[in-house]
């Protein structure tokens, strides 16, 4: 393979990883935008999504198989259930803390994260689990680019979800209310917007997208683990900051950019795979220093 062919392959690898990061980053960014909370439990929601997909497939496989139709059904059911879980967590853990100092709610989020992954650790006996999807792993070529059916479907699905979300945010009243609350919660309340309901919807949508990413990661990598949400949580946070935290198109863009940075970063001599995470977090630091509002962020005074 010539260098440009390697880079083309890495471009595709980066887009796929980046779309997972993007889907998780959206939830981070939405929640931050609306209640200024860095939801550290969000990575664990992604993990719960993967496990709920596994449970669905295990139950459904004998009846309707474990191919794409059953995966799509599983995806929808898991997104709904995990979305509701997000709403419950929001109601039980975060809503009573909304008027408390910001640090308290941050610590609550850490506690929620620990409760979630430790529960799954106990249930799954701490072991890696095989994700039982039966999808094509046969590869084919477009030019020199090696692709599989699975990869193409996953990337299309990820982009479709992002597009649907974008429409939801920009074209519906709920989306408009979310954007309004992000600007000024108190005024929204005075204008008669049911703020708590909108916050609940935000958690539902964010959690559902993370669950979708979790299931997609299960299909793509083939194994899942109770701690799989930790690193992706940090990466999604990085992606959200790169794109401008609180700005939803920014989270998508940040996720894709981070995926590409990682994929190409490993091609730089002496960096290699082991430095991948160092590379992405170094970018986080650079962004925090030189462009703290992210790619799409406006200056702080305007946003407030």
């Amino acid at each position: 393979m010539a260098l440009h062919e390697v880079l083309l392959q890495q471009l595709f690898n980066g887009l796929l990883i980046g779309s997972f990061y993007g889907l998780v980053a959206i939830g981070y960014s939405m929640v931050y935008g609306i209640i200024k909370l860095l939801n550290f439990a969000h990575g664990d929601i992604y993990m719960i999504g993967a496990f709920s997909g596994l449970i669905f497939l295990t139950i459904a496989a004998p009846v309707i198989g474990a191919g794409w139709p059953s995966l799509i059904l599983g995806l929808l059911i898991s997104m709904t259930l995990v979305g509701l879980l997000g709403v419950v967590i929001q109601r039980v853990a975060y809503r009573p803390m909304l008027k408390a100092p910001r640090l308290s709610i941050l610590i609550t989020a850490l506690a929620v994260s620990m409760i979630l992954y430790n529960t799954v650790m106990i249930i799954s006996a701490g072991r890696y689990r095989v994700f039982p999807a039966e999808v094509g792993t046969e590869s084919f070529f477009i030019g020199t680019l090696r692709l599989t059916e699975t990869r193409i479907i996953l990337i299309v699905a990820a982009f479709s979800l992002m597009f649907i979300l974008h429409m939801f945010i920009t074209r519906t009243m709920y989306g408009k209310a979310m954007r309004a609350i992000a600007l000024d919660r108190d005024t929204c309340q005075l204008m008669g917007i049911d703020v708590y309901k909108i916050i609940a919807i935000t958690f539902f949508v964010g959690s559902a997208l993370a669950a979708a990413a979790g299931i997609m990661a299960g299909v793509y990598y083939g194994t899942i683990h109770f701690f799989m949400g930790f690193l992706i949580g940090l990466k999604a946070f990085t992606a959200a900051v790169i794109g401008g935290i609180g700005i939803i198109p920014g989270a998508m863009l940040g996720g894709l950019l981070l995926g590409l940075l990682e994929a190409f970063g490993t091609q730089i001599p002496f960096i290699g795979t082991v430095w991948k995470d160092v590379f992405s977090f170094a970018f986080l630091i650079l962004f925090l220093i030189f462009k703290p509002n992210g790619l799409l962020g406006r200056s702080e005074s305007e946003r407030m």
């Binding site: 392959q9 796929l16 690193l231 990682e262």
Partner: peptide
């Protein structure tokens, strides 16, 4: 010759290097 971290799930970059 490469090194990954414990807990790594994505080897696509290494695989691409290998295929080259």
């Amino acid at each position: 010759d490469d090194t990954v971290q414990r807990g790594e799930v994505d080897f696509s970059a290494f695989v691409t290097t290998i295929m080259a």
